[in-house]
Simulated assay, not measured.
Amino acid sequence: MNLLRKILFPFAILYGFITSIRNFLFDKGILKSTFFDIPVIAVGNLSVGGTGKTPQIEYLIRLLSDRYKVATLSRGYKRKSEGFVLASSSSNAEILGDEPFQFYQKFPNIQVAVDADRTNGIIQLLSQNQKPQVVLLDDAYQHRKVKAGFYILLSSYGDLYADDFMLPTGNLRESRSGANRANIVIITKCPKDLSDKEQTAIRLKLKLTCSQQIYFTFIDYDDCIYGENEKVAVNEIKEESKLLIAGIAKPTPFFDYLKNEKDECLTFPDHHNFSDADLELIQSKAQNKRIITTEKDYVRLKDSKLALQLYYLPIKSTFINHQQNFDATILEYVKLNLES
């Protein structure tokens, strides 16, 4: 914890008090939450950024979209549009935000919408001719104006919420007790070989209730990078000189997976809108080399002048164990709440 964060400790206490009062008012029904009569699954975290929400939403899309009509609803962080927007062929990352646009491009059989007002967003989705049967709320754990039927809380292995503190001293958006709302807690970005002993230690540390389930996942990188017109095996480009760029919260694992001693890495802020000056910088650094970026950054850059030398590396969330139990829990929730 740096000195400035220590100095701001009184503000963290105040912020924690305010968020606790807000949660108390929602818990007691004094502040209104809207419940919808379709399955609504909220995915989010207690901390600020970097827990792997996007690959977890994509996992749920793959699990559910062959069986049900699925919609995702996000805030659309840093988009240049306002209000409710339903993705269409005219949409781009500026209109939707990078992550929703990524969902739209990867999963053409689902509906993708953005709205800062999640209540209005769901109402608008349900007013469509082809209304969804399941809504996935992206980064909506603290959006208490909607009462989701099922909550999935994510926490990074190297940055557990139990070890964190409230903003601005720490990175928590609300107190650790907020974890009590979760039906499932997923510890993301784990080592692939995380032992049963360490999994048990984390379970005990988080002090979950007997009704809460916990799972452990790791980020699984694709074996290929993908460009506008081709894909190339990662093992073919590992040793060549290339430029790696990332505008995500925690880019180190991405860089480590691809880089060698000849590579240069450029880091930008999370959800970065690349300016003309940024493009000039990237182009001057790359020269004629491949430019490899994250999938989230690719959707912002693919129509730029970098397109011909630009590639992205897909990722997905993979369960260390008990994946079938997780799938069964989600499918049972959806089935029961569609039948009720």
Rank of each mutant, 00 (worst) to 15 (best):
L172P: 02
A148W: 07
Y161M: 11
P100N: 11
G76L: 03
L154C: 09
R173L: 06
T169P: 05
S156L: 07
H143I: 04
L206D: 03
C190W: 00
L86F: 08
L204W: 07
S74W: 01
Q128R: 13
A201H: 12
Q142M: 10
N129Q: 13
S89G: 14
L96D: 00
C190V: 07
L194M: 10
N183K: 12
A140G: 10
A179L: 13
Q133D: 15
L125R: 00
R181M: 04
P108Y: 06
L206S: 05
D196W: 10
D163W: 07
I202Y: 07
L96M: 15
F107R: 08
G76I: 01
A71P: 05
D138M: 12
P108I: 08
K207H: 13
R144E: 10
E198G: 06
K205I: 09
N92I: 02
N180G: 07
L204P: 03
K145T: 14
L126P: 04
R176Q: 15
S195Q: 12
R176N: 14
A113Q: 03
N171A: 12
P100I: 00
G149L: 11
G76E: 01
N92T: 05
L96T: 00
Q128V: 11
K205T: 09
F84G: 04
V146T: 10
R176Y: 13
N129P: 10
L194H: 03
Y104K: 09
F150M: 11
K78T: 04
G170T: 09
S91W: 01
R67Q: 14
L137S: 06
R176K: 15
V146F: 09
Y157L: 13
R173D: 04
G83P: 08
L137P: 02
Q130R: 12
F84I: 06
Q128W: 04
D117W: 00
D163N: 15
D139P: 06
N129F: 08
N171H: 14
I187D: 01
S177V: 13
F103I: 01
C190K: 01
T200R: 10
A179V: 11
R173T: 12
L125N: 01
A182V: 08
A87P: 03
K189R: 15
A116C: 08
S90C: 09
A162L: 08
Q133T: 12
I152Y: 05
D139R: 04
D115E: 08
S156G: 12
E82Q: 15
Q133E: 15
N92V: 05
V146S: 02
D196F: 14
G121K: 02
F107A: 06
Y141P: 00
R173C: 09
K192H: 12
I95E: 02
R181S: 07
L167I: 15
R79G: 03
L86H: 11
G97K: 01
G170Y: 03
Q124K: 15
I202D: 02
K147A: 15
G149R: 06
V134F: 02
S91C: 05
K78M: 06
D163V: 11
R144S: 10
N183M: 11
G178A: 10
D138F: 02
S156N: 11
Q128P: 03
Q133N: 12
T200E: 14
S88T: 14
E94G: 07
